[in-house]
Computed example of a mutant assay.
Amino acid sequence: MTASGNDAAFPAARPRRLRRGPALRRLVAETRVLPRNLVLPMFVKEGITEPVAISSMPGQVQHTRDSLRKAAHEAAAAGVGGLMLFGIPAHKDERGSGADDPDGIVQAALRDLAAEVGDDLVVMADLCLCEYTSHGHCGPLETGGHVDNDLTLERYASVAAAQAEAGAAVVAPSGMMDGQVAAIRAGLDRAGFGQVPILAYAAKYASSFYGPFREAAEGAPQFGDRSGYQQDPANVREALREVALDVAEGADMVMVKPGLAYLDIVAKVAEASPVPVSAYQVSGEYAMIEAAAERGWIDRERAIVETLTSYRRAGAEQVLTYWATEAALLLR
């Protein structure tokens, strides 16, 4: 339709001109997700001979060392930027001894991955004790059942050195203990690993979205919960304070976890942080999209790319996502 006699009745500004066709939309897109922005979380379990399906996370498994290597090669071939490794030991105890055992499952798997894909992507190790303790909390307990913060710092420093010795390119403390970054930095430096960076889970919230992860990592608390050390979902300033403390203690990168319900936090952290910012698309987010897609309620592939774009738009330079390999192929 053309204007006749009254051009003012028609808009002079027409933003739709730049939305005509996928090629033009791609050309002018403000935010891009590239395969190298993605990090794939992976679980490796001691004592199994075949991968074990995770029922609450369709398509995800607890890996054997062999299947882990295969999946890592697939991620590297797709252009994924990194891997984040979680270990599930065959035996647990009060202090989480398996976490820094040189022959423990994570250290063995780190050696595998560093040797086979370490030149192609960044091999990271989650640094915590919840998968290794018999009680499921993130550090040794003091009288009364609370986590002993300062004793836990000693354990974290030891775990960091063991992971670095095994080949971790980055260690990622996730326990939300006060002073954990400083203790880990000092421990790494003492052990001769001054070049190993720390990706700090700086703003990790006590979230309902971790449910499927607890099946995947077999690390659910045997009593209570982790709200005594993870952040209250109501708090924003606390997240910025935690980030500032971690950076001051020597964090080379910081992370916000979870992501989708905390994109405001991601944006504020990205604006304030002098170091790179990561965000974790957690197990509950993955499970919700998979469940809705299985029922035909949403377009699965579009939802994956759209949510990853939202992370990048909020300011995350890296996104940890269980879809990393698949999304990398879609994006390419």
Rank of each mutant, 00 (worst) to 15 (best):
M1Q: 00
R17N: 12
G21P: 03
P22I: 05
A23I: 04
A29C: 04
R36N: 00
N37R: 05
L38G: 02
V39I: 15
E46H: 08
G47N: 09
E50Q: 14
S56A: 13
M57L: 15
P58D: 09
G59T: 10
Q60Y: 10
H73T: 08
A76I: 08
A77C: 03
A77E: 13
G82N: 11
L85G: 10
L85A: 06
G87S: 01
H91E: 15
E94L: 14
R95W: 08
D100Y: 14
P102N: 03
I105N: 06
V106G: 03
Q107L: 10
L110E: 01
L110T: 01
V117S: 09
V117L: 01
D120H: 15
M124N: 09
C128W: 05
E131R: 14
S134W: 14
S134F: 07
G136H: 08
C138H: 03
C138E: 01
P140A: 15
T143F: 04
T143N: 12
L153F: 06
E154C: 05
A157P: 07
V159A: 04
A160L: 03
A162N: 07
A164C: 11
A169H: 10
V170Q: 09
M176E: 00
M177R: 01
G179W: 12
V181W: 01
V181L: 07
I184H: 02
G187L: 03
D189H: 04
L199M: 11
A200L: 01
A203V: 10
F209G: 13
R214C: 08
A220R: 05
R226C: 04
G228N: 10
Y229W: 07
Q230A: 12
Q230H: 01
A234E: 03
A234D: 10
V236K: 13
L240W: 06
R241Y: 08
E242H: 12
E249S: 01
V254N: 02
V256A: 10
Y262H: 14
L263Q: 08
A267S: 14
S273T: 02
P276W: 13
A279D: 05
Y280D: 07
S283N: 12
A287F: 08
I289K: 07
E290T: 04
D299F: 04
E306G: 11
T307C: 08
T307R: 06
S310Y: 11
S310H: 11
A314G: 05
A314W: 11
Q318M: 12
V319F: 02
T325C: 00
T325S: 06
A327W: 14
A327E: 03
L329Q: 15
